[in-house]
Computed example of a mutant assay.
Amino acid sequence: MTATVATVKGGEDGTDSPYALSHLDALESEAVHIFREVAGEFERPVILFSGGKDSIVMLHLALKAFAPAAIPFSLLHVDTGHNFPEVIEYRDRTVEKHNLRLHVASVQDYIDRGVLRERPDGTRNPLQTVPLTEKIQSEKFDAVFGGGRRDEEKARAKERVFSLRDEFSQWDPRRQRPELWNLYNGRHAPGEHVRVFPLSNWTELDVWQYIAREGIELPEIYFAHERDVFKRGGMWLTAGEWGGPKDGETVEKRLVRYRTVGDMSCTGAVDSDAVSLEQVITEIAASRLTERGATRADDKLSEAAMEDRKREGYF
């Protein structure tokens, strides 16, 4: 996204004085506009909040959009039961700090009731779709904010900012609507809803630079720390009750951090000594892989893994 630059004659010496939004200001302005547009168009919006960096930035933007009033949305988290404890602690602390309402859709509940079955590989990320879509339907949410960005993965690059879902929460790329001049079409039939992506035009580097500029607190696992991990599929995974390590997989203590946060069973850590925001930004700027491409095993199940799940109702 390119910021619009307005140049005027302002100096006594006749030089041009540029007045332009920085790229972060432009991205922030766009996201704030999207939040306010949804508040005006929809009756029951909700913010998908996992305690990961993108959802944290999204919540920060929502708080800015409606300050000093409270945000007119509740939060929704699909709890896999295999989440990082540091992230769940951050989630609960944030909800309490801002006096927010949190809806939780539990994958474990669906497993206990026999609606879902554990996968052989132990990962529960693909099992999130049914709890998510049923919670949306039961609560009658008509707009659901997600932190997806177009630079993350090729299926997410196809998304519009307003992405229509049918009465079964399924995504059809052929029903994508044009979005010209930042005009968003929220029209939907009864039973349908719209997924909204305020961070669509952000990159991972933008997110980290914005976190640094705004002084946003993050869970500690985003910074380098010592952790017991084992290697599987080329990634460093955290040992846990979800099914790792297996025979032949050796646990070792390494200095690592996480670029993205999901289910422990499919989210890999990266070797890193970046303990500050400045060091993380430098590391990200030099990386040639997106965070999902480098550290998410669930995206590697097939060439079209993410798109298949999106068609079923996943984000």
Rank of each mutant, 00 (worst) to 15 (best):
A3M: 06
P18W: 09
S22T: 15
D25L: 10
E28A: 11
S29A: 12
A31P: 15
V32M: 04
F35R: 04
G40P: 05
F42K: 09
E43D: 06
L48P: 00
L48I: 02
G52S: 03
K53L: 04
K53W: 01
H60K: 06
H60N: 06
L61N: 05
A67Y: 12
S74Q: 12
G81N: 07
H82D: 08
F84C: 09
V87A: 14
E89V: 08
E89R: 15
Y90T: 05
V95S: 05
S106N: 12
V107Y: 14
R119L: 15
P120C: 10
N125R: 03
T129Q: 13
P131F: 08
P131V: 11
I136N: 02
Q137Y: 03
S138W: 00
E139P: 01
E139I: 02
K140I: 01
E152T: 01
E153R: 03
E153N: 14
S163I: 03
R165D: 00
P173I: 06
E179L: 05
W181K: 10
L183A: 05
V194T: 14
W202E: 00
V207G: 00
Y210E: 02
G215H: 07
P219N: 05
R227M: 14
D228M: 13
R232Y: 13
T238S: 14
G240P: 06
G240F: 07
V251K: 03
K253Q: 08
K253L: 09
L255D: 01
V256R: 11
Y258K: 10
G262Y: 03
G268P: 06
Q279P: 04
E283M: 12
L289S: 10
R296H: 07
E307P: 08
